[in-house]
Each structure stands twice: as C-alpha cells, then as structure tokens.
Nucleic acid binder design. Structure first.
Lengths: 232, 232
DNA sequence: CTCTGTGAAGTTGTTCACAGCC
DNA sequence: GGCTGTGAACAACTTCACAGAG
C-alpha cells in the first residue's frame, strides 16, 4: 500500500484532460494503442512531456509498444475524479447561461446540470432542456437538498461576487466563473475563471506582434486570500 | 528611440488583460492611483509579480505613490494592440455561437462581431443582434472583403478542423476555438482553445483531491507543427 | 516612511539523453 | 529497432530583498 505518489505539477493537471479527450477520440476511431509521440502531436507538445506527465500517475506504458488506450482512459478518469458524475448548477440564465443549459455534451462527460437560477420572474418556473429554473432565494435550499459539485456563474459582472458568496454559503463545492471580474471566495473552494474578453485581448497581442502560434491551457495558482507565501 | 524592449514572458502577457480589466473597474469607481499591492489582490497574485510584469513594458510607476490608473490603462491597451478595433466572425451559430453574437460586451471592448456563418439553411440570411448570418460558401469572399482579425469556431467537434483550415485559407488572422478538439493550423496563426469540459475536469480533480483554491489563467505555447526544439 | 524597479535567489516546469524492456 | 521511464541539464517563471525615488 504505497501512498506517497509523487506530487503532480499543476501544469500536468491542466494537460491531463486534453490527453483524455484525445484518447477517447482515438478509441472511438478503433485504435487501441498509442505512442507518446502521437499523443503529443494531438495536444501540441512533445513526447517527453507526455511521458513525464503520465509517469506522475504510474507506469502504464509498454516499452517498445506504447500505451494501451483503454487502460489510460481508465487511469486518467480515475485520477481526475471523473468516476462519479458531478452535479452542476447555472446561476444567471441569460444568453450564455442558456447556451450552457442547452448543451448536452456535458452530461455525456459526467457533468449534469441539475438546476438553473435567475432573478428574472419571466424565467423563473420555466424549464430549459429539461432543467428547471428557480428563483435565487431557493438556491440555498436546493443546494442543501441535492448537493452540488460545481456552480457556474453567468451573471453580469456586478452580481458575480455576491453570487459567489451565496454559492459558497449554500455549500457548492467549486466555482466556474464566466463573469468578467475576479471573484474572491474566503473559503478553500476551487475557482476557475473564463473571461472571453481576456481571450480576445491575448489574441490581440499576438496579432499585433505578428507572433507565433500559441495554445492556451489553464494555469496559475493562489491560496486563500492574502497571498501568504509558503514555507520558505 | 530605444527599440530593444526586453522580451515579455508569456505568463506576463496572460496577466496583462486582467490588470487592464481591474484598472478600468477602479477607474470607473473614481480612483486615479493604484499600488502594486492593490492590483495584486485583484487578480490573486502578489505585489512583486505585478511590479515585475509592468516593468517589462516600461517604468510608469511613481515611487512612494503607485501607478496612475489612466496612464497605465493607456499603456496596457497600447501594448496589447487594443488601439484599433478588431473584427470578429463566428462560425457555427448554434447555442454557443448565438450567445456570443448576442453579447454586446465585446463591442464595448473593441471586438466587433461582423458576421456569422452556418450550414443550416434555416439560419442563413437571418440576422441576430444586428449581425448577418451567411452560408459557409461565402466565407472566403466576405473575409477577403472586410478583413477579419479573429475567427471564432463554435461548430461541433468533427467540423472544427475543416473550419479552421477554411478560416486560415480565407485570411483570418487568428482563431479562438470552442470545439472540444485540438485544431492544427499549418500556418503561424495564433490559436487559443477554450474547452468547457476541460475546465470542468480540472475542477473535478481539485474537488476530488479536496485541494486548495486555484485561479485559472491561460498558458502554454507551441510553435508551428512539429514541436521542433529551438536553438539549444 | 511609502512604494516602485530590479538583480539575485529560489521554484517550477520542460527538454535531453540514455538505460531498460519489448 | 521502437518506445517507455527518468535522472540530470536547462529554461521559464516567481519571490525575495533591497536600493532608490518621492
């Protein structure tokens, strides 16, 4: 029972879902084995990177052959905690919120949107794509009842911080924020931000520079609030 | 006329739009000067990081005081190439594509969506939020005519690669891809990928680990295709 | 005394290069 | 001969710590 699996770098964590995506794709095309080189091409890195990344989870390659796709998918899913389905809610059923409610691809991947919330009376009580829209006041009660893994914020910027606090208070375990502000959650709740204007602006820079190709991958950590430095 | 401004790290580039966002926010609240510490809190990093990042663009802080917000906004906008408005098209007017077409926040920030494209005859010829939807066959002609800075891909995964190639071929200068596949563009065209399932899966990992807070920021580079290493 | 700008130190992440197994 | 796994070298990025300006 060896428990001390080496610490997996954040940068690696961010790539694992991409490997998984590619592997599932390969598998559905009938392939059963894949080399690090092939996987690397797929996500725009090199084979050494792939081998190093995968080596953090264990040794499941076969020298001279490659990786058995089915087994790798299993290992990655396990490692990423995808074994059980996750429950997701969407707060803010505007254009983007509606688009997310309407997309069925998440469910296939184990992320089920179980409720929507909004303040607009014309939306409350309706259902979209089989998902009920509730009023904000019900958030706490519903979250307590069904247990929610991920809360998506698709409200206007000014409401985002307030919503984030309500989500945490209600017991939502992590947050995906689409509002164009940084939200501050006092707790140790994982938060990821997706700001499309930021994406545009980064592209704008490379455009104006006449720069080379870039592939975006998530990254950047922070602990709690203050930015306390760690041990030294 | 000193031209050899130091190379700005990718990690810094990815943070600049966040500083800009925060500065605009501060400014609209009537503030005129800001310290590195305050800016750092805003995006979840520390003051040394902020000062180092800004120092790559020049010296515009005032010792003992801080940064003049208006000036910093100007410098950042300039640096990111936001001085002239950018033209954007959306290929794939499904749920997500429609949401993007309907959102007016981009225009305010200088990114104007000038056309949509789809294969669905029921959408072609319509207009959404003042943007005309064209058939895919018109892509080349329209892009040639108006000049397009950013092409957004919101098609199903199977079509994304094909669309990417058409965009490049038509002369679109950069790509923002929402389809859940890695696209391969032969040219030196900047590409950024946003895959919401990937975001979910990264959150899933931190959830299952009971891990600390993370803030996502884009990152990861690649040159052209092969992954050729650089000079040694 | 406050807050910036920046070399230097420290940390994290990537690539090399080769031993080991198929 | 082909491909993985991995220490060691290298490169990128972050944080420290302090000189210097207001």
């Amino acid at each position: 029972m060896k428990m001390v699996r080496k610490k997996v770098p954040k940068a690696t964590i961010n790539r694992l879902p991409l490997y998984l995506r590619g592997l599932v794709n390969f598998y559905s095309k009938g392939e059963r084995v894949v080399s690090s080189t092939r996987l690397a091409e797929l996500i725009g890195t090199n084979s050494a990177q792939v081998r190093k990344d995968l080596s953090f989870l264990g040794e499941f390659g076969i020298r001279g052959i490659g990786y058995e796709i089915e087994k790798l998918i299993e290992e990655l899913s396990q490692f990423l905690g995808l074994a059980q389905a996750k429950k997701v809610i969407v707060v803010g059923v505007g254009r983007l919120g509606s688009a997310l409610l309407g997309y069925n691809g998440f469910k296939e991947r184990g992320f089920e949107i179980v409720a929507g919330f909004d303040v607009d009376p014309s939306k409350i009580g309706k259902e979209m794509n089989g998902v009920n829209i509730y009023k904000m006041d019900s958030l706490r009660k519903i979250v307590k009842k069904i247990g929610v893994d991920i809360g998506i914020i698709t409200t206007p910027a000014q409401k985002a911080q307030e919503v984030a606090e309500k989500l945490v208070e209600a017991g939502v375990k992590s947050i995906l924020n689409f509002a164009p502000v940084s939200i501050e959650v006092s707790d140790k709740i994982p938060v990821r931000n997706v700001d499309l204007s930021v994406e545009f602006q980064i592209l704008s820079y490379y455009l104006s520079k006449g720069e080379k190709s870039i592939i975006k991958r998530g990254n950047e950590k922070r602990f709690g609030e203050g930015g306390k430095p760690s041990i030294k």
